[in-house]
C-alpha cells in the first residue's frame, strides 16, 4: 500500500539532515510499529507522510497505491493526501477555537466524498453517521458540539483523533506517539478503537517510544529507528526486547 524509498529530509531552512535514507514497505492488512529513542526522527517521518511544510525532502520517494494506481505523494498538498486515504493521528492534536467538532468532521468527511465523486451528506444524515461511529468507539456525544479539542483532556483529544479516523475511513493510518500523555484507561480505549477499525484493506503505522501501546495494538512488524535510519526490523518480539533492555544494545 505504501512504499517509502531512500527518504532523506531536513527541517525547512535548516541543513541538518534528520532522515538519512528510510526504506519501508507496508501492505494492506498490516500493522507496523516504529520505535526509537528521542530524536531518532520518528515524528519527522509521520509529519512528512502527512505533508507538513516544515520539512523538506531532499531525496527518495513515498509511493501510495490505491485502486491499482501508484502515486508519489511527496508533491501533493496535505489535503490531497488526506482525500486519497492517508491519515495521521497527531501527537498533539490542535485546538481550533470557534469551530465545533461536528462541523469540522462533516466538512472533512464531505471533502473526502467530493474527491471520490460521492454525494455529500447533509447535517442530519451526517449526525446519524457520526453517532454510529461514536457508539462503535464507546464515545460520549457531549463533545461533538464543543469547539475542536478546546478544553479537551489529553484522553479526549486522542479519542477525537480516533473518531476522525473512524469517520474518514482512511486506508493508511499513522499514529504519531498516540500513547504520549495517556493514562492506561484512555490508552486502552484508543487501542480498542484502532483494533475495531483495522481490516484487511487498511494498514497502520504506529509510532511510539514505549512498548506499552503495542500490548494493545499488536504489530506485525517492529522497526527500530535510530539517527534517521531503520537499523533493525523484526516481528513483535523486538518490542518486548526493547522494553526489557532499552535501546542501547541495538545502537552499539
Amino acid at each position: 500500500m505504501i512504499e517509502i524509498k531512500n527518504l532523506h529530509a531536513h527541517v525547512e531552512g535548516d541543513g541538518t539532515e534528520i532522515l538519512k535514507g528510510i526504506d519501508l514497505t507496508i501492505n494492506a492488512g498490516e500493522i507496523h510499529a516504529i520505535m526509537g529513542p528521542n530524536g531518532s526522527g520518528k515524528s519527522t517521518l509521520s509529519k512528512i507522510i502527512a505533508g507538513n511544510p516544515e520539512y523538506e525532502v531532499t531525496e527518495g520517494s513515498i509511493v501510495f497505491e490505491r485502486d491499482f494506481k501508484k502515486i508519489d505523494i511527496l508533491e501533493l498538498e496535505p489535503e490531497e493526501r488526506a482525500r486519497m486515504g492517508i491519515f495521521m493521528a497527531f501527537q498533539y492534536p490542535v485546538e481550533v477555537p470557534g469551530v465545533t467538532t461536528s462541523l469540522f468532521l462533516r466538512t472533512a468527511f464531505n471533502e473526502v466524498c467530493k474527491a471520490h465523486g460521492v454525494d455529500e451528506m447533509d447535517a442530519l444524515d451526517f449526525n446519524e453517521y457520526l453517532k454510529s461511529k461514536m457508539a462503535m468507539l464507546d464515545m460520549d456525544d457531549k463533545f461533538i458540539n464543543r469547539p475542536v479539542n478546546v478544553d479537551f483532556s489529553g484522553g479526549e483529544k486522542k479519542r477525537n483523533e480516533i473518531l476522525q479516523m473512524a469517520v474518514l475511513n482512511p486506508m493508511f493510518n499513522v499514529l504519531d506517539e498516540t500513547d504520549s500523555g495517556l493514562d492506561i484507561d484512555s490508552m486502552r480505549i484508543v487501542a480498542d478503537g484502532v483494533n475495531k477499525l483495522k481490516n484487511d484493506n487498511n494498514a497502520f503505522l504506529v509510532i511510539t517510544h514505549y512498548q506499552r501501546l503495542l500490548n494493545y495494538i499488536v504489530p506485525d512488524y517492529v522497526h527500530i529507528l535510530h539517527d534517521g535510519k531503520i537499523i533493525r526490523s523484526e516481528g513483535k518480539e523486538l518490542a518486548l526486547q526493547v522494553e526489557e533492555k532499552g535501546y542501547d544494545w541495538l545502537l552499539s
Partner: peptide, 30 residues
C-alpha cells in the same frame, strides 16, 4: 492564523483556503 491549525485541517482533507475560512469564521462566530 496559526499555521498548525491550518495544517491540522488540511490533514483532514480541507483545502488551505477553506481551512483559513473555517478558522477565521470560528474566530468571528465565537
Amino acid at each position: 492564523l496559526e499555521e498548525d491549525e491550518i495544517f491540522y485541517l488540511q490533514t483532514r482533507g480541507v483545502s488551505r483556503k477553506d481551512a483559513i475560512r473555517i478558522i477565521a469564521t470560528g474566530f468571528a462566530e465565537e
